[in-house]
């Protein structure tokens, strides 16, 4: 599976050792009351939680790799990500997802300045930095500076196109296939595709030659 960060996540202590916060208690209480009132069932809640856990950048990476291999698939993916996902047995949910393609002339970056809209039904929940004030504020105003903070430099001749996804669609980047990946099969190509390159803040990994 494509993983694009190697730093450790903060340690989470065993749940029972930590005092419950006000909002944790609220979440538990609301869940219990909704079940008791028959608004939702425990089974439905469990099923949705499992669905949330089943989403990961790997699904998006598989689609990108397929698009790199197959121009017809790429055209269908650019037209309708949800439908193209279905072809591959991937459930991308009902909120329309659009892919924007990086080319030699254009580099795309996704942000949501009003909240934190993200194609979560395809690639899972967003990283915290995506929801942070610094990313949401600055990406529209100085995208190239923000990109350098991710270690990404885009040549001046290439247009940086920022997509503020604040309405009814969700956006992902279809990155350009990296040089040197010619001989690779679909699975090996998918390994080059990271979550961050589908947000547009980095480029895909380069193959080990």
């Amino acid at each position: 599976m494509a993983q694009d960060h190697s730093h450790p996540h903060p340690h989470q202590p065993d749940l029972e050792e930590t005092p419950l916060t006000h909002y944790q208690a609220m979440t538990e209480a609301v869940g219990q009351l909704l079940i008791e009132k028959g608004v939702i069932s425990g089974e439905e809640l469990r099923a949705v939680l499992e669905q949330i856990d089943s989403k990961s950048p790997a699904a998006g990476a598989r689609m990108v790799a397929r698009a790199w291999m197959d121009d017809d698939f790429k055209a269908r993916m650019l037209a309708d990500v949800n439908k193209a996902a279905e072809e591959m047995g991937i459930d991308a949910g009902t909120i329309p997802i659009r892919a924007v393609e990086n080319t030699e002339a254009v580099h795309n970056v996704i942000v949501c300045t009003l909240c934190s809209c993200y194609p979560r039904n395809l690639i899972g929940l967003p990283p915290d930095w995506y929801k942070a004030r610094s990313y949401r504020s600055r990406t529209v105003r100085e995208p190239r500076v923000v990109l350098t903070e991710f270690g990404t430099t885009i040549p001046d001749a290439v247009e940086v196109r920022v997509h503020d996804s604040t309405a009814d669609l969700r956006y992902m980047v279809l990155p350009a296939r990296p040089a040197g990946s010619e001989g690779l099969d679909e699975a090996a190509l998918a390994d080059l595709v990271t979550r961050d390159c589908m947000i547009g803040v980095t480029l895909p990994k380069t193959p080990d030659l």
């Binding site: 100085e142 920022v162 604040t166």
Partner: peptide
């Protein structure tokens, strides 16, 4: 969109 934008003159922004 911005006074004194320091990126490239060809850069664009798309909003729904």
């Amino acid at each position: 969109l911005w006074d004194g934008y320091e990126g490239s003159s060809g850069d664009t922004t798309v909003v729904d």
